[in-house]
Write a protein that binds this DNA or RNA. Structure first.
Lengths: 153, 153
DNA sequence: CCATAAAAAGAAAATTTTTCTAAAAAAACA
DNA sequence: TGTTTTTTTAGAAAAATTTTCTTTTTATGG
């Protein structure tokens, strides 16, 4: 599998910023014609550099006004326990992200809900029903200071 | 500003999953023609429900193999102190996300870098140079268990 | 039941994506 | 260095999609 040259990197930068740029627009910025841009993007998709194209919604407008980062510790750390947690956490739509982390706790969740009542319901009736959960610690987001999904390439 | 009906919600669901679905594909799924789909999407963009269309890259393939969630506490919490931190954190490309949180610490950062050496450089020569930084606590991501940017609507 | 407004369908125009062939550039090799 | 081979790009044409426009349908309210 090949390396990325400068043109590839520039194309990826632009696509990170806006998945709806046309080949024509990208070509104009790079000073080349449409075909090589088209073919490079197709190659970047096939080689797996591009994972997917998604639409970001305004969370306030769709009513997800409460975001929390929730640290979870398990009581027991056998392979089965960990795998069971990782499997069960998938089902909860409130959990947008879940990471196994090294540090004071085991997992870090990003949870998005409508309000505190819904969050309470999530913790009380969903998260806590998973066997083997030890400590929970929620940090509620007061304000989003920076948010970009574009990598610095 | 209007409410979303079922068709709008279905369109948003589909677009969250793939920003490259054509109007034709979406229309087929909804059992309608292209024009109303086209016009609804344009309306959703104008009303601000759709924020942007982005491309997700494979972080491993582009060399961002280390992710950390870094908790930051400030020493002093005057308005100026907080605003200064929020302003300075913007400039660091390693910081993809930064949240002001309520809880034991003040801010939570998501930091993405090539390796531990680069992370060390970030903490030592960039983050720590911000005035008024108190405690730092890094949780390194061992494994990404779940990752979706789609809201449950 | 009719009048009005809003949404959808259908068709046409404009633009973009995709394919294909030829030319140019780059790489490989004697 | 010159020649061959391969890769990349340009340009044009075809296919598909987006966008616009007009007509029809559906919903709303008197």
């Amino acid at each position: 599998m090949e390396e990325l040259d400068d043109l590839d990197v520039t194309i990826l930068r632009l696509l990170q910023e806006n998945a709806h740029y046309t080949n024509k627009e990208i070509a104009a910025r790079l000073g080349m014609t449409i075909t090589p841009v088209y073919e490079r993007i197709k190659r970047l998709e096939n080689q797996g550099y591009i994972k997917k194209y998604i639409t970001l919604l305004d969370k306030e407008k769709i009513g997800k006004t409460l975001t929390s980062f929730c640290s979870v510790s398990l009581r027991h750390h056998t392979k089965d326990n960990v795998e069971q947690f990782e499997k069960e956490i998938q089902q909860f739509n409130e959990v947008q992200e879940c990471y196994h982390v090294a540090g004071a706790t085991d997992f870090l969740l990003k949870v998005t809900v409508k309000n505190m009542s819904e969050y309470h319901d999530f913790v009380r009736n969903k998260l806590s029903t998973i066997e083997n959960i030890g400590n929970l610690n929620s940090s509620f987001v007061l304000n989003e200071i920076k948010y970009t999904l574009a990598y610095d390439i």
